[in-house]
């Protein structure tokens, strides 16, 4: 589904990713872990198309298409969706309006036509229930005055409504208490499907107690230095990243 090949990325002249290679297949959940500054968030940001990242070498393809050639919105329309670590506030824009605009923009781009309003409302209400969110969320301005936990739940709500093929979740666990993390994890687990892949970017292992990944990659200094299964995350928890770095060196 997603192929990242020898990806080199610089930000303001500093090379952050130094030859990252990664393959994600449909149905899989991958976790990328690594110390601060290793380039974890850079990877998902580059795939989503954020400004300020320069790809100097390598390729990213999604279902055979060159992702780096696509506009930001085209990537989302193709089924690549990024859940933000720090979702921004958009004053005056209702949450429901953003959801509807996003869903319909994606549907129209795929030639499916806009979703009729009653069907949309039904879908949203169902997903709200999943995320244990009150319907009043829909009428509030996007992320405005949301607590950290509410913002993260809102990100997952968007995933559930928009149903991407590849969901990339950037530190979706940061700043969550244990209850909120369970709700978020339940939401993510409900996204798991044969035809969908999930890429988790996380600093801590604890999220992976709730979302069991198929593969865990350790990202150090811009490269994946080790790949394993869920057990690898547990080792990291016990030994820290330094152990890995040494074993690689």
């Amino acid at each position: 589904m997603l192929q990242v090949n020898d990806l080199h990325v610089t930000v303001e002249g500093n090379e952050i990713l130094k030859g990252l290679t990664l393959t994600i297949n449909a149905g899989e959940v991958h976790a990328i872990m690594g110390p601060n500054g290793a380039g974890k968030s850079t990877l998902s940001a580059v795939i989503a198309g954020k400004d300020g990242y320069e790809v100097t070498q390598g390729t990213v393809t999604f279902e055979g298409k060159d992702v780096l050639e696509m506009e930001i919105e085209e990537r989302a329309q193709a089924g690549l969706l990024l859940g933000f670590q720090y979702p921004v506030e958009i004053p005056g824009v209702k949450n429901i309006y953003l959801l509807k605009s996003a869903l319909n923009a994606q549907r129209v781009a795929r030639g499916e036509g806009e979703m009729p309003a009653p069907e949309f409302m039904k879908l949203v209400k169902e997903k709200l229930g999943y995320m244990k969110m009150d319907a009043s969320f829909l009428q509030r301005a996007v992320n405005e005055g949301f607590s950290g936990g509410e913002k993260k739940r809102n990100e997952i709500l968007q995933m559930l409504v928009l149903q991407p093929k590849l969901a990339m979740l950037d530190e979706i666990d940061s700043g969550l208490d244990i209850d909120a993390m369970k709700v978020v994890a339940d939401g993510v687990n409900s996204l798991r499907a044969e035809d969908r892949a999930i890429l988790l970017v996380t600093h801590y292992q604890r999220l992976l107690d709730y979302i069991i990944p198929d593969k865990v990659h350790v990202l150090v200094d811009g490269r994946i230095v080790k790949t394993g299964d869920a057990e690898l995350a547990k080792q990291l928890e016990a030994n820290g990243y330094e152990g890995i770095e040494e074993s690689v060196a």
Partner: peptide, 15 residues
């Protein structure tokens, strides 16, 4: 905000 724009666009909404 560049961030606001990116957020909306990354949901599939045109600039």
């Amino acid at each position: 905000g560049e961030d606001q724009l990116f957020y909306c666009q990354s949901r599939g909404i045109s600039e």
